[in-house]
Design a protein around this nucleic acid. Structure first.
Lengths: 125, 125
DNA sequence: ACTTGATACCTAAGAGTTTTATGTATGTTT
DNA sequence: AAACATACATAAAACTCTTAGGTATCAAGT
């Protein structure tokens, strides 16, 4: 006899994730050299313990856009009869990745201050 | 003779700020008891050294929505002939503030891991 | 043989939030 | 008088993501 256990994983109310998709893609691709779309969704899910689950409806159009902007390059591979489209960062994409990650780090720091600071002494006259 | 010095303050590419507006509003109002819209924009600008500049077109509709959702209450005050609309958090709003701030903290931690982790050893089979 | 679930790609309508562009009006500084 | 800051507000457009669908291969269970 088996008992099914459901662990409630806190999924972020998705509005927070908005605006981070490109940064995530660029970071993963810089670390991994090349990845395909589905792999990106699974890797993010694994790395975040299911907290961030990229939807394909958001991911694929974004990958296409980033390719047409010259940030990513692609190569197709066949696994049996199944297609895989691998994405890699271009030189331009690497530069962008640095900017984006930097920007996000600064944003986190700013928000940390904003949400933790005691405002008791501050006043707008 | 004076030399004008312009300090380039890095304004966040605004997509990162998306989804954080309500959290910011709730946090400020929990700390300050009551604030009016314009004051919120100025306070956020000051606290973040100009890095986050809320636009009025985003702020006012959001304040109205939060009021109609029962998270905020209002009282009008006259400064001379000029109207000020003060917002305060309701009991419900305080609970929501706690949730939101918590959620954001967890989100930051998740993103920190995601963007810093060395992925060299990981593989999706 | 059939169904289910995972893998793997894709698009399009709709929802939601923010930007940009206005508008009104008072008070203060140059 | 003009410019700027204070203070509210709305509406069209832009942008991103969700939801919902579609196609197809492969593995595993019934």
């Amino acid at each position: 006899m088996f008992v099914e256990v459901k662990i409630k994983t806190m999924l972020y109310s998705s509005e927070l994730i908005k605006g981070t998709l490109r940064t995530i893609i660029l970071k993963l691709l810089c670390d991994q050299q090349k990845m395909y779309g589905y792999e990106i969704t699974q890797t993010v899910k694994d790395l975040t313990q299911g907290r961030i689950q990229l939807t394909e409806g958001a991911l694929y159009p974004t990958l296409h856009a980033m390719e047409s902007e010259g940030l990513l390059t692609t190569e197709v591979e066949y696994i049996g009869k199944r297609v895989r489209k691998y994405y890699s960062v271009s030189k331009q994409g690497k530069a962008k990745a640095g900017e984006k990650i930097n920007e996000f780090a600064e944003f986190m720091e700013t928000m940390r201050v904003l949400l933790n600071l005691d405002l008791g002494t501050l006043k707008v006259q």
